[in-house]
Design a protein around this nucleic acid. Sequence first.
DNA 1: ACCCTCTATGTGATTTTGTAACACTTAGAG
DNA 2: CTCTAAGTGTTACAAAATCACATAGAGGGT
Lengths: 172, 172
Amino acid sequence: MTSSPRTEPSNNAAPLGFKQHDHASCVAEAIAAAEARCARERLRLTPVRRKVLELLLQEHRALGAYAILDHLRDAGFGSQPPVAYRALDFLAEHGFVHKIERLNAFVACAHPGTSHSPAFMICRECDAVAEAQSAPAKGALGEAARAAGFQIERTVVEAEGLCPDCAAKADA
Amino acid sequence: MTSSPRTEPSNNAAPLGFKQHDHASCVAEAIAAAEARCARERLRLTPVRRKVLELLLQEHRALGAYAILDHLRDAGFGSQPPVAYRALDFLAEHGFVHKIERLNAFVACAHPGTSHSPAFMICRECDAVAEAQSAPAKGALGEAARAAGFQIERTVVEAEGLCPDCAAKADA
DNA sequence: ACCCTCTATGTGATTTTGTAACACTTAGAG
DNA sequence: CTCTAAGTGTTACAAAATCACATAGAGGGT
């Protein structure tokens, strides 16, 4: 397999927040912010890691590890799975990207810096992903956990449905 | 108990709700309820499907498709992945089992019959899984979805952390 | 400089998870 | 009984993730 499977070029579509916005600047800002934070916290934003983050920011959608790997190969980095997975592990561990369990894919964090428990809206038609905030441990789940004596450390919240664009198309 | 196959033995731990309870009867009841519902709704609870449901009820924890497949083989059913996946698809589609995305595994539904949007607590130490109710679309996520024009159809809510038993062990 | 150590990267191979495609069987409708 | 559609079985394969081990650099202490 060569390049990205079903996920294709990055120009059109309205991935992240289901709405368009100035992209070049938002990517640049996010990278700068990541660099600043890594410098502050003595984290090493190495070339591979930086490239992966850039990629995810640029594509602005969920990408599988192997799609990322294709880009890495094209950029002259190693081309074996561990290269991508290790970079993704680092980025996810420090909150620069999130894993979308439902898709076995990764997406750049939309609220970097702020500590948060993310929730995602995933379009079942076009796989666009939007990130929102959630506080699942505050509601019924939190109560159940307290009642059961379960200590929540992290939560995965992923809503599947139709994004505005695909809903409009489906209406037709 | 199906004498321990080549997969994990069913150590009796305290899986589902993080607490012990009479198991033989709860399995029997659940199977009877599933049969009743299938009869009512003209669904076909075939031998393979029934076996898979039994298995998940009996083990009372999340099992991977291939672990299930091992049991199916031992029970004389087909031994190729599609056999297990198809049965699981059927059971999940009708709410008899749930998929735990975080673990790529399946667990019998703990609240069958009642239409619900499940939430799970997953122990990161022992992989025990407890099912709770959730209403994610009611909170911050629901608001974000409405604001974005996203139509939620289904949500995955999975909390990772420490179950009471493992927390106690960790304290020591 | 040098050595030492720890982290990160590169690579090959393998395991685990999930699908596609197609043939065979069988339950149930007409 | 015949036809059809759903269910099952199997081969083959694709996709996702990890293991094991070798190499390369960064940083620290002397």
